[in-house]
Structures are given as structure tokens and as C-alpha cells.
Design a protein around this nucleic acid. Structure first.
Lengths: 196, 196
DNA sequence: CAATTAGACTAACGGTTGTTAGTTAACTCT
DNA sequence: AGAGTTAACTAACAACCGTTAGTCTAATTG
């Protein structure tokens, strides 16, 4: 432990996460990472097992966090619109808390080796749960009868890209952002709503 | 020219674009690329200048295509909603025509070297034009008075991610997709529209 | 205080990287 | 038919990759 309350291992992983966001997993070398934490490359291995292991730690912990959040939302009693708002808030919260890691989750998952299958399973389940929520909202005539896959894609890609954009809007607090974003995603932008 | 009507150089660039989509620019080696076009790595250099040059070709041509499309839309006489629908169609069309390239445009632009500034300038202008269209729609009370940056972000990230999702929906034709996606993005998904 | 440990270091490994040089065989054009 | 061009090849380059081995020093522990 140092004065900032984080271990060297944590410092290495956090620094790696930042570098991975900037250049992608493959373009970051262990010497890059070492220089960023002011030690030699070989010294990294006193704290971590491998480069691959860093990526695994970043991605799997995030993916499992999303999975836990979705479980809670899925099993709640809320109506569909509120479940969707809860999903928006879930993404906003996780992204605020780990902005850099979201880049790896989105762009570097294919470089997972042992854990690739596990990750893909988590993602598939997440998307299935998402679609089921939308479908039940359509059935209850709570949301419009549009293609549920298009709806999910539209919302989910926006939420997955939050990490790109959120750092530029540090003035917005997370409740406000989740509210505004939820409004736009759910109610659209059209003032008159001509196609109903 | 071969029987498929494409030069060897075009074949190399198209193959590279596919590989870049799957693993990212940095993780694709010239030997990977050579194997995929059934020649030796050194032979690639009879057709292309460098690995970097391939990336430049992919990204800059796409970015300039978007810029030209935006110029046309911007200078048209259409109302805001129709301009936004035209932007959706622009992305759908370019993405259908060059699905793989969109991955590099989204994820590998930071590996541009000489052309990085040029790319960033194009992107900045594009986003500014986009925001101006939204703002004039708000002023004309055509679209809701929400944060124009959030609106742009929400729409643009969805459109930028189309390449991830479009290949799975080959049954949908492009007009239908542009229509459905435009509906969802512009009119939202809420059946009742409670927050107006 | 002696013994252990944690965490940095240097040196080096086998492999891979993008790329160049030089060669050769097959086409194209006069 | 001869000259020139195209596009493949082998061989090799210097640099860089992730990682290991072994060493040294300062802090921690019994």
C-alpha cells in the first residue's frame, strides 16, 4: 500500500487500462506499461502473471458486474420503461466508475484467450435478457411495436459507447445524465411525433 | 485484373480490411495478411507502400465519403427531421457498402500517423455540422428541447456501431433498415410518451 | 538481530515484427 | 524475337515482443 491507498498491482492494472483505452491492447507493450509506472518491464512480473492476465482482469470483472446488474433488474417488479431506465443507469454508473475499462470491454474482448468463451456467454445472456425485457414491453403495449432487435441495438450501442463521450461532460452528474439519456432513448427527439 | 474484376492491390486492401475488423490493426501482421491472399509477406510490397498506407487508404476514403454526404445534406432545403433521416440513410448506405472498413474507422483511427490530424479535423467538422442541424431543429421546435450533444451522441454512436450488427441482419434491405432505425432514433420507443 | 520477503534491477532468451535487397519466371509490347 | 515490365519468390535485416533467470537491496517479521 502506498499513500494513495492502492497496491502496486492495482496501480499497474489501472495504468494498463488507461493505455489500452488509448491504443488498444495489442499496441501497448509491456515496456510502455512499465515506463508509465516508472519501473522496468521485468519488474511488472513481480505483481502480475502476464499481459493476457491484465486484460482478463479488466474485462471479466466488468462483464460480471453488468451481469449482476441485469439479474437485479430482470427480477425486479418494475414496469418495462423503468427497467430500461434502470439499465441506462447501470451503464452510466459502471462507465463513470471505470471509464477506461469500458474501452477494453468493447474493443479488446477478442484478444481474450482462455476466457473468451466465458465472456461471449455472458454477453449473449445479457443481450437475451435485454431483448426479453423489450419484448414484454411490446406485449404490454408499453413500448411501440417496432423490431425489438433494432430497439435493443440502438439503445445498447449508445450505452456501450458512453465511455467515449462521458469524460468530456464531467459537469453533468450521473443522475442528470441518466435521466437525460433515458429521455432521449425512450421518448425520442421528435417534438410532434408524426409516425405513430 | 483477375476474373473478379479487382486488381491485386484492391484484393490486398479488402482482405486487410476484413482482418483489421476481426483483430484490430495492431494485431494483424503483414504475414497474416500475406497468408490470407496466398502470397509471401515480401510480395505485398509490390502492390502497397506500407502497412500504415493500407490503414490510411481505408480510413481516409471512408471519412471523406461521410464528409461529402454531410455537405450535401447540410446544404439541402429539407426540414431537420428529414435531414436526420438522410444522415441515418447515409450511414446505412456506407456501412452496407463497406462494413469491414467501418471497424477501422471506429477503432483504429488512432494508429494513423501522418493523416491523424486530417482525420480528426474531418471528424470534428462532421460532428459540428451534425450538432448545428439538431440545434436548428430545436430552434424551429421541430425536435424536443433536449441537450443537443446528448441527442447527437445518442444517434451518432448508434450509427457508428451499425457495422457490428448489420451483417447479422442481411434479410433487411437498406431502405427498410434506414426507415426502422430512423423511426426508433427519432420517435423513440415509448408507446405513451409521458414526459413531454 | 538474524532471517525472510518484497520488489526493484540487469541481462538475456527465442520468437516475431515491418520492411528491403536481390533474383527469377512469366507476361506484354514493339 | 527481343526488351521491358510485373509480380512472385528466398533470404535477411535490425528492432522489438513477452517473458524468465538471477541478483541486489531495503523493508518486514519472528
Amino acid at each position: 500500500m502506498n499513500t494513495t491507498g492502492q497496491t502496486r498491482k492495482e496501480e499497474i492494472i489501472i495504468t494498463a487500462t488507461k493505455l489500452f483505452k488509448e491504443k488498444g491492447y495489442s499496441a501497448v507493450t509491456m515496456r510502455d506499461l512499465a515506463k508509465a509506472v516508472n519501473i522496468r518491464a521485468a519488474s511488472l512480473y513481480n505483481h502480475i502473471d502476464s499481459k493476457q492476465d491484465i486484460l482478463k482482469t479488466i474485462i471479466i470483472s466488468l462483464a460480471e458486474e453488468f451481469t449482476r446488474g441485469m439479474e437485479t433488474i430482470k427480477s425486479s417488479e418494475a414496469v418495462t420503461i423503468d427497467k430500461l431506465r434502470a439499465i441506462v443507469a447501470l451503464h452510466v454508473n459502471i462507465t463513470i466508475q471505470n471509464t477506461y475499462g469500458m474501452a477494453s470491454l468493447n474493443n479488446d474482448w477478442m484478444h481474450l484467450e482462455d476466457q473468451l468463451e466465458h465472456y461471449l456467454a455472458l454477453r449473449k445472456t445479457y443481450e437475451q435478457d435485454f431483448i426479453e425485457i423489450i419484448q414484454s414491453g411490446i406485449d404490454a403495449q408499453e413500448i411501440r411495436n417496432a423490431n425489438p432487435e433494432i430497439i435493443m441495438f440502438s439503445i445498447l450501442t449508445t450505452l456501450r459507447s458512453l465511455y467515449l463521450w462521458l469524460p468530456k461532460k464531467e459537469d453533468l452528474n450521473r443522475q442528470e445524465l441518466a435521466k437525460n439519456l433515458g429521455d432521449v432513448l425512450i421518448n425520442g427527439i421528435n417534438h410532434h411525433r408524426t409516425t405513430d
